[in-house]
Structure formats: C-alpha cells, structure tokens
Nucleic acid binder design. Structure first.
Lengths: 333, 333
DNA sequence: TTGTATGCGTTATCAG
DNA sequence: CTGATAACGCATACAA
C-alpha cells in the first residue's frame, strides 16, 4: 500500500497540511518541525503522489509533444530523436514530464493537440517544425494554450519559438565559399513555402548579391519534397542551364542526390554543402560537408522557453536562436 | 473556465454521478437519459479531466519508457525512434499516454524508474534493451511493478517481454549462406554479455555445426562496443587469422566497418550481412544486406502486451516474438 | 434507473 | 507557526 501524506503526518505528530508545507519548503515552518517531518518522510519512504498534486495544483508538470509523421522523416529522423533528447534533458532538470504522440497527418495532429488540451493532461505543448499556414499553430493561438514551436513560425509575435538563424547560416556559408574562390554558386531546396526554405534561400541570395554574384532563375531550383530522388532531379535540371562551382543544398538528403549525379557524371570540381549534418553525411562519397543545426539544443531550449514561460507566467524572451556550425568534410574544405 | 461534470449534470438535469455513468457507458442507465446527457456534453463541449479521472481510478493511463544512454549512438538510433513510434501507435489506440526519459547511465535509469513508480504517475514501464544482470529489471521485479522489456531478459519467467528470435534469425541466415555455397563463415559481434549477442552468436554457432562447419576461436570476434571503428578493428583482427567467404555482423554499424576494410583492401569476394536494416544499409558501398528486426513492431507489441496485462490483470501471453526478415542487397544476394 | 455521500491524495484558505 | 476544512474533478458504494 502506498504511503500518503496522512501517514507521514501521524508519524511526525503533525497535521497533513504541515507535511505539505514542509514538502514545498514553506518559510513559515519552524526548522524543528521541518526536521521531524523530514525524518518521518525518510523513514516511511514517502513520495508525493504526482496525480493528486496535479489535481490540487491544476498543473500537471507534463508537456506534450506532437511529432509529425511525414515521409521524409525516416532518414532524417535523427533530428527528432535528438530534439526529444534535448527536450527531456531540460524537462528532467525541472522535474517536468514529457509525453509524445505521433500524428499520421495534419488532421490527426490537430486531434492530438485538442485532446492534450481538453483532457487537461498537459500544461504546455511543443510542436516540431512549423508548416506554412499551420493549422495547429492557429488553433493553439486561438485557444491561448501555452506552446512552443521548433522552427520559426510565420507570425512569430506573441508566441514562443526556437530556431536556427537560417538566413545567417546560409549567408555565412556563401561567404565561406566565396572566400575559397567560388564565383558561381547554386542553391537546391525544396518546399518553397516552408519558412526554413525561405530563410535559407534568402540568405543565399543576399550573400551572393553582396558579393557581386548575380542570381538568376537558372542559379537555383526549388523542388517539391525532401528526398534523394528530388535531389537527383533537381541537380539534373540545374546542370542543364548552368555549371556552378559549388552547390548549397537546403538539406542533406538533397545533397545526397547531388553527389549521386556528380559521381555518375564523374564531375569532380563542384563543391557541395548540405544542412543538418545527418549521420549519413560523413558516409557519403565524398564525405559531405554540412551545416549542423544542433538538434539537441533546439529541443533543450524549446522546453526551456516553454517551462520558463509556464513558471513565470510572463517572460520577455519569447524566442531563442541556436547556433549552427559548418562541419567541413571532403565535399568542401 | 473549464467545464466540469457538474455543469453537464445541471444542463441535463441529472446528478453528476449519472453523467459519470453515461461517460463510462454504464448499462444501468436508460437510453433516454443517456441521450439527454450526451446532448448536454456536446453542447457544452465537455471533456473529462484526465488528472481527476486518474486520481479517482488510481490509474493514470500513462506508460513510462526509459531510453538507455546507448540511444546516444546516433547511427543506430532509428531503432529507438521506430520503437517509440510503434509504442505510441498501440497506446494511442487504447487511449494511453506515453512519457519518456533519457537516462545518462544505469544509475540514472534506476532513478527515473523509481521516480516513475513512486510518484504514482505511470501504470506501467517499458524498458528498451535488456542488459545482462539488469538492475532495472531486478528492481522492477522486486517492487512488483508492471513492466515490459524489449529484448529477452535473462530470467524471462513471470515477466513481459518482446523480442525477435535472434537465435533462429541467425540460424536461418547461416543456412542461407551455406545454400549459396559458403563454407567458411565468420561472426563479428560486440558486448559479449548482452543477450542479443549471446543469442545471435549461438544461432551462428549451432547452424555452422549442423552444417558441418567447425567453429574455432579464429572464426569469430566479439568487440566491446557497437560502432564503426570497432567494426574496422574487429575485421582486421579477424582477417589476420582467417579468410572467410562470408561475415555476419551482429549489427549494421559493425558491418559498415567491415565494408570499409574490405573496400580499402579491395577484397570483393566476401559476402557481408548485418542486422537491423538501418536506413544507412542501402547507402553503403556495396549496399549492405541486413536482417530487418522490425523495430516498430517490437514497440507496438511491447505496449500491447503491457496494456493487455494492465487491463486484464492476468494474461496467459507473457511474451511475443517479432518476425525478422533478411533484406538482400549487393553485399549478399 | 438515478441520486447522495464519500474518497482518491494534495494544496490552499482561514482560523487560532 | 500550525491545524481544521474545503476544494480539485471524477468514480462508486450505498440508498432510494
């Protein structure tokens, strides 16, 4: 049988409310009785019941995370497990729990979110990856439920988010390439209405312009999806009109496609850089240089910003930028 | 403000207990009032409070999963995310929630488990991967707390587990190799005290013996850890004493190391087969044949067996074997 | 078939 | 500084 606060109270010869106060280390309890109660707690090995506590507090200390379940994920999914790890790291520090749900599609995602909220199980929600015109975000905003997004949302005022500075990262990358003497740089992306695409492309474009490299339509290709085949198709299309000296891929999977084409055509003098630094990057031929987005940090700060918000009720910081880092390998060094 | 069971009761002109009964679809309530209450529920958009329900039921419908620190191995981790996906799939069906925690080491793991149990937050626990002499399992057994293990534990009586038949899978694999004419087969594994290692090695050994292939010490190597470098070292060691026509790797990451050595030495006539069918397998040169362990199914049935146990309180089935499937690619076909 | 009263294990309010 | 007492939202034994 579980030992409750009552047993402890009896053991320590105080009332249950006193025990409760000792547990929350209330300042208005004498050190003496605190000692006595703590002793009793130890002796009886008492642990507070999280559920009962949640009910009384109307706070569960549980966070809900909804994982999207899109086709592209299987390969790139180290992002998810890493982000989840980062999330749990901070949450565990703060004695929060995290519960997760995989959604089959956007509709299911909304359902899970709705369920999380209305069942009163979670105090806050964490969304991985913002879509454009994101219905989940819209819904969460409407209901005023606390949540954080990994990936900058379109309308980012008044909501919590964590992301890399994708503009800056790509901007810097172009500069590095230029420093190495590159004069004709191409960009291969996908999902033109995703914010991450917009940001990275913009960083590419602006940096090129600053460096006096003119960017025309033939300099870049934006595909529909993130997968190797699209990378292959995009590269073929690109090479029809132009022969760049370097290609930036918005994501490693696209870069894998690029490398395939280059290998096949035995083209050796085009540098390639991807994004995300997936574990597969270093196994490519040649090993792929890639911008590490620091997934674990993204997750860590997502829960940090959310929990801080929940506890302070009001914070000045509503977003956080995670550093990126170019990992140089054979494909560009 | 959240609408509670009281509001609904008032709206439907019944008592709260009646509403409660309607929610659990009690047979002893007239269809008529059921209708009326359901109407009220819809009108008021009432959703039961999960926490309050948990307290009253003394069941949270929350499962806890503890991820081992080996999850850090970024390369092999598709197993974890896939297992988690499978777990959530069944749990969601049954309206269970899953909360996870990453443990840094065995000590932390024990702490999390203890916390899960004593805080009364979870109804059951799922462990990923059994160690030998597993303290977590021992502890869970002692406390009599419901739990399931993915990966056959040493003493598997009276506890729930899910696993592949690793003996059988390796046994069959050897037979396939023999059928293709192989007469000298080697085994490269790691972590000699893991059950999965024991089982796969045993399958290898027995099958070889049955086929009249004698197995001596030079025929196999068991390394310390699962990573590519260990695969490389193991292969080098192996090839010092023997030149097999086929090598079985206990895990794909080890196989990646094997392929590296073979490529470097331009050895073309050794077939290689790994385990786990990681997404990287097909990207190897040559594409690696691998035994798919069906991670998602493992997770799915783990929660299934656990939830079934929790709900029936007593089940005859206490373990479940998940099929494996050899995926043939260039490295062995 | 339905309602009343009580408990689930805490926390919070209000006295003392 | 400490102790009753009443919530928190729901479930259920017992009555009616």
């Amino acid at each position: 049988m579980k030992v409750t606060i009552k047993e402890v109270a009896r053991e320590a010869n105080v009332s249950p409310s006193t025990v409760s106060r000792v547990i929350s280390d209330s300042s208005q309890i004498s050190e003496e009785t605190k000692e006595r109660v703590r002793d009793a707690i130890k002796r009886l090995k008492y642990k507070p019941n999280a559920i009962a506590r949640s009910l009384a507090n109307r706070k569960s200390r549980i966070l809900g995370v909804v994982l999207p379940n899109e086709a592209q994920d299987l390969i790139t999914n180290t992002f998810f497990i890493q982000a989840m790890k980062g999330m749990s790291k901070y949450a565990q520090n703060k004695r929060y729990y995290i519960t997760y749900a995989f959604s089959e599609d956007e509709k299911a995602e909304l359902e899970y979110i709705n369920n999380f909220i209305t069942s009163n199980l979670v105090d806050g929600i964490c969304l991985l990856r913002a879509r454009t015109d994101d219905r989940s975000i819209k819904y969460l905003k409407e209901t005023q439920f606390p949540f954080v997004v990994i990936g900058r949302p379109e309308e980012s005022e008044n909501l919590l988010w964590v992301d890399n500075d994708n503009f800056q990262a790509t901007y810097n990358l172009v500069n590095e390439l230029v420093k190495k003497g590159h004069k004709c740089i191409s960009f291969l992306g996908a999902k033109k209405d995703w914010n991450v695409t917009k940001d990275r492309f913009k960083g590419f474009k602006v940096a090129c312009e600053i460096n006096g490299i003119s960017i025309q339509d033939k300099n870049f290709v934006i595909m529909d999806d993130f997968n190797e085949q699209e990378g292959i198709n995009g590269t073929i299309k690109l090479l029809e009109n132009i022969t760049p000296t370097a290609i930036i891929a918005e994501d490693d999977v696209l870069a894998f496609g690029i490398l395939k084409v280059l290998n096949e055509r035995k083209i050796k003098n085009i540098d390639v850089v991807g994004f995300n630094n997936s574990p597969l990057a270093e196994l490519q031929i040649p090993p792929l240089s890639s911008v590490d987005i620091n997934s674990e940090e993204l997750g860590y700060h997502a829960t940090k910003i959310l929990i801080d918000f929940l506890e302070n009720d009001y914070t000045s910081i509503n977003h956080y930028i995670i550093d990126t880092k170019l990992v140089k390998r054979e494909s560009f060094k």
